[in-house]
Simulated assay, not measured.
Amino acid sequence: MSALADFYDLLLPELPGCATGLLDLHLRDVTREFCGATSVWRTPLASIDTVADQATYTVVVPANSALVRITKFAVAGLLLWQLSDRGADRSALVARPKYVPSTPPFSMNEGLTQITLMEVPEATVIGGMEITAALKPSLDAPAVPDFLKSQHSEAIRYGVLSRLMAMGKKPWTDRELASVYASRWNSALGFAAYQAQVGNTREPLRVKKTI
């Protein structure tokens, strides 16, 4: 994990006099927005024991994280659903999910802490439910995953600077530059979301034969 302080060198040169407490606040907010909008932070959650005739289960996420959405869902070794099949292996040898992306076989409660299955398990299976989820840092997270620093530090930098430079009557106020950074932030956000949707790769080229 990368501490919020690991981003300071990318930001403080353009924010003279900015307190680190304020910087931490916006760093955390921007990384939460980035992860929520793009689903780039995806990880398998701890498997859940299914119980016969029980439909609702508690979903546990890693410390200092919050659930954004479920992206892949399997029960008893059978892939039932995934958020998107873009970038997935489409070969005949790979089993396709039972449900299409628009009709997930589960629902979540308002707090995203419990999942209720449409297909109630017929038997108890240890670790029978496997979930991959998109996450974001929690409201009080002191650190973020390393890949956000190594792969997306520029996007996060744009987001933080666009916010702070738009503040009025601060030593670092620069509304014109804030607008530039806001544009770069929105572009980076869109591209990161696209990459996450297609499996962090560009779409395969379609080649048409010519005679």
Results as ranks from 00 to 15, higher is better:
L117D: 03
V100K: 08
A92H: 02
V94I: 08
M118K: 15
L112T: 09
P105F: 00
P104C: 08
A92T: 05
S91H: 07
F73I: 00
E119T: 14
S84D: 02
M108W: 01
Q114N: 06
S107Y: 05
T113Y: 01
R86I: 15
S91C: 11
R96H: 10
K98R: 14
S84A: 03
A74W: 01
P101T: 05
Q82W: 00
E119W: 08
Q114M: 00
V100E: 11
P97S: 10
V100P: 02
Q114P: 02
G111R: 15
W81N: 03
P97W: 08
A95W: 12
T103V: 13
Q82M: 09
L83Q: 05
G77D: 03
W81S: 02
S107H: 07
S107K: 00
S84E: 04
L78R: 13
A88F: 10
E119S: 14
G77L: 04
S107M: 11
A74S: 09
Q114Y: 01
P97C: 08
A88G: 06
S107W: 07
K98E: 14
L112K: 04
D89E: 03
K98G: 11
T116W: 01
K98F: 12
G111E: 15
L83C: 08
V100I: 12
A95Q: 13
Y99M: 07
V100G: 00
G77P: 00
A76D: 03
V94N: 01
R86D: 14
Y99P: 06
L79S: 05
L78C: 05
T116I: 04
L93Y: 13
V94W: 04
T103G: 09
G111A: 15
E110V: 11
A92M: 14
I115K: 02
A92L: 13
W81C: 02
F73Y: 04
P101A: 07
R86P: 08
S107D: 12
A88V: 13
Q114F: 01
Q114A: 09
V94G: 09
P97T: 03
Y99F: 14
F73L: 08
A74L: 07
L117M: 11
P97Y: 07
W81L: 01
P101H: 07
Q82G: 05
S84Q: 04
T103C: 13
D89W: 08
W81Y: 01
P104Q: 05
K98Y: 14
D89F: 08
E119A: 15
T103R: 12
G111K: 14
V75G: 08
S84P: 08
L112P: 00
R96L: 12
T103A: 12
E110S: 14
L79D: 03
T113V: 05
W81P: 03
V75F: 02
R90E: 09
D89H: 07
V100D: 11
P101L: 09
P105Y: 10
R96Q: 13
I115Y: 04
T103D: 15
T103P: 07
A76Q: 09
M118L: 15
M108D: 01
E110T: 14
